[in-house]
Write a protein that binds this DNA or RNA. Structure first.
Length: 675
RNA sequence: GGCGAGGUAGCUCAGUUGGUUAGAGCGCAUGAUUCAUAAUCAUGAGGUCCGGGGUUCAAUUCCCCGCCUCGCUACCA
């Protein structure tokens, strides 16, 4: 018996959980832990909500409530829906818990006391209108070396000098446009660069077996070179930095969140939690999505290593992403299948979702969920293969043997082959699960039912019953044994159906290692009431979902779009200083080596000038010439990627981020003023 | 733009440490069958293994270039 600590990424509590989260993290993690438990291992499955960080404060501000209200709402919703889907967490807690606050503080403090952090005092700019400290790149000003008036807080692009924001003359906040004030602040950095040799050895040498996407990304980070990373923030929502003189500062959410795994373990096992985190015999497994790789493979292990007494993860099986009907799942665009809605709309079909998301899991590359595929897999696989096989075996037994498991006769070669294959399939399922290949494991599980269907067709008990009832007894006995094996071996994937099958067979769920054999049900055992394991999903239900997606996609784009709050008042004079003209784009080329920049020549009526704009993702150079646009003409020129941009083209940004030109309704003479 | 992962049958995916006819499930076609939720079983059709070069006796598999998708990151007056 081995000991396992299995974690699944903490969902961020600013929205409900959708099928992408499930397919990527929670369903595979649940399969894994259910399997380990069935094998008799000592395993803890740790989950919880991640409730700190800036996005939650922004959402709270938008909705006019407190951050606590936001996280209370979503934590409850998420916890409840996980439970309903049978995600078998041993604990699902939250990072606003008392235990977590203490644990995160303690770990920070330990590192602090060990001198593991770099402490940096600095004067940082604070935007009084936006009410926050500004990161360097949110500040522009005049370069002290070359006099460029549009240098960034971290670097002047004109002379190439690296700067500190405090070096700038006449700094401005790019958030509000106002002049920020200097405030002294202090932050703590984890010098990741110091852990590079350790990480390199540990990952690149000792964990070559990790999935290629995980290993590749870690290697990329390590080869690029790691930088010290700030682990504190100036913010009023989070865990206070437990150090004197750190008032108003909180732990960076990515420092505190993974510690939540530890805190939640402690909350569950106040006395014994340490053996799950500090005993070298314990295997720690993190289930995550691919966007989380660096935090779980680089930063969190560095924190654990710095602390010194914790074990490191054995594996970090990160999945890719799931698309929905060929489009990226998006919370903000409401393009998702929400778990709590699915559970309401498909009652009793928890396993169908679990099945489809496993059979189609994005294990090696991004995958696509479609409702048609969902229906097909239910109707053609769960119903037709698994459910149907069980039903055939049970109905025939009731018909010929009064619902009692018949006494088997002498086994023929084909019977022995069947039982031999059963053991093979079981072992295939085991090795697949242990290697995090759940899709394959599920397929092998279904092959057991396929094998049963074929066996029934080959032996044709309904034909031979009259002349050879003894043979039929053997055949049906074996079929029921196969069904009993299905019940056990499919339980990690389809726990609800296994319960149901247990009741149909009137036999309890047994341990994993007792399966794989053809003697699970004794002769004479009385079966339970026959009922269908799965039912067909009709076209109407699928059409409803597709219509709903189409509708909510349109509706929510309009309803959910929250315009940015109005900026502070200005005088007419401020406005009148802006010289906005109508101009015509003459030519356009993409700026090489950039993702978004387009270099255009624009006839402003005043002159023909060069303007660089970040629109290349939305327009091709070919479609631009001839277009009339509004140009902010008297904007100070600015060097972008070595090109001097003389002005700015006005664009509207749609709710989905798409850019649209602000153009005159009719053709206007170039140089016309806009006011 | 840099880096990482992926691009294989209509769909979802395996696989090839380079080697005769590239696999599975679903879908489709044909046949068998009727115990079963028109479910099952068998057989079959379907693929310039993203494109172009190169190395090799031989490349889908190795190398180079390019295109596409996703992620991280940079940039986006």
């Amino acid at each position: 018996m081995a000991r396992y600590t299995v974690t699944s990424a903490l969902p961020y509590a600013n929205g409900p959980v959708h099928i992408g989260h499930l397919a990527g993290v929670y369903v595979p993690a649940d399969i894994y832990v259910r399997y380990l438990r069935k094998k008799g291992h000592d395993v803890l499955f740790i989950g919880g909500s991640d409730e700190h960080g800036v996005p939650i404060t922004i959402k709270a501000r938008q909705e006019g409530v407190q951050p606590q209200d936001i996280v209370d709402k979503y934590h409850g919703l998420i916890k409840e829906s996980f439970k309903r889907l049978g995600i078998s967490f041993d604990i699902y807690s939250r990072t606003t818990s008392k235990t977590h606050r203490e644990m995160a503080s303690k770990i920070f403090r330990t590192l602090y006391d060990k001198g593991a952090f770099i402490e940096k005092d600095s004067e940082q700019y604070y935007d009084r209108e936006a009410k926050q400290f500004l990161a360097d790149r949110y500040i522009t000003g005049t370069c002290p070396h070359c006099g460029n008036e549009n240098a960034y807080g971290d670097q002047c692009e004109k002379c190439g000098t690296s700067l500190n924001a405090t070096d700038l003359i006449n700094p401005r906040s790019t958030l509000s446009g106002s002049a920020p004030e200097l405030r002294a602040t202090k932050h703590w950095y984890l010098p990741l660069d110091q852990y590079e040799p350790f990480l390199r050895e540990w990952i690149l040498e000792e964990h070559k077996e990790w999935k290629t996407n995980v290993y590749g990304q870690c290697k990329s980070w390590l080869d690029t070179g790691l930088q010290p990373r700030a682990v504190t923030r100036d913010l009023d929502w989070g865990i206070p930095v437990p150090v004197e003189g750190a008032e108003g500062k909180v732990l960076y959410v990515w420092f505190d969140a993974p510690i939540g795994y530890i805190s939640n373990t402690k909350e569950l096992c106040p006395d014994t939690w340490e053996k799950y985190w500090k005993d070298p015999d314990t295997k720690l497994i993190h289930f995550i999505g691919k966007d989380n790789i660096v935090f779980h493979c680089i930063i969190f292990p560095a924190i654990l290593k710095a602390e010194g007494s914790f074990i490191l993860p054995e594996n970090v099986p990160a999945n890719e992403f799931l698309n929905l009907e060929n489009e990226k799942i998006s919370t903000s665009r409401n393009w998702a299948v929400w778990l709590h809605e699915y559970l309401d709309e498909f009652p009793g079909k928890e396993d169908v979702l679990r099945y489809v998301l496993t059979a189609n899991a994005p294990e090696t590359k991004d995958n696509n969920f479609t409702w048609k595929d969902f229906q097909d897999r239910n109707n053609n696989e769960l119903v037709a293969i698994y459910g149907n096989f069980v039903n055939r075996a049970v109905v025939l037994t009731h018909k010929y043997f009064g619902g009692k498991v018949p006494v088997p006769g002498t086994l023929l070669p084909e019977d022995l082959e069947l039982t031999g294959e059963l053991a093979v399939l079981k072992s295939n399922i085991e090795s697949s699960i242990e290697n995090y290949r759940f899709r394959e494991a599920l397929k092998e599980t279904m092959n057991i039912a396929r094998m049963g269907n074929k066996y029934l067709t080959d032996t044709e008990p309904w034909k031979i019953y009259k002349e050879n009832p003894e043979r039929v007894a053997t055949v049906l006995n074996l079929c029921l044994q196969i069904a009993a094996n299905m019940k056990v071996l499919s339980e990690p994937f389809l726990p609800f159906s296994s319960e149901k099958l247990a009741s149909i067979l009137n036999a309890p769920l047994i341990a994993w290692d007792d399966a794989g054999k053809a003697d699970l049900l004794p002769a004479g055992h009385v079966l339970g009431k026959p009922e269908l394991l799965f039912e067909k999903i009709e076209d109407e239900a699928i059409e409803f979902q597709l219509r709903k997606l189409a509708d909510t996609k349109i509706a929510n784009e309009k309803i959910n779009y929250i315009p940015a709050p109005q900026k502070s008042s200005i005088q007419y004079e401020d406005f009148s200083r802006m010289d906005i003209r109508i101009g015509t784009i003459l030519e356009a080329v993409k700026v090489p080596k950039t993702g978004k920049l387009m270099k255009m020549t624009v006839d402003t009526g005043l002159d023909k000038r060069t303007i660089v704009s970040g629109i290349a993702e939305y327009f091709t150079p070919e479609e631009l010439p001839g277009k009339q646009v509004c140009v902010l003409a008297n904007l100070e020129p600015r060097v972008i990627k070595g090109i001097t941009s003389q002005g700015m083209i006005l664009l509207a940004e749609d709710s989905d981020g798409k850019l649209i030109f602000v153009s005159p309704e009719n053709i206007v003479r170039n140089g016309s003023s806009v006011s």
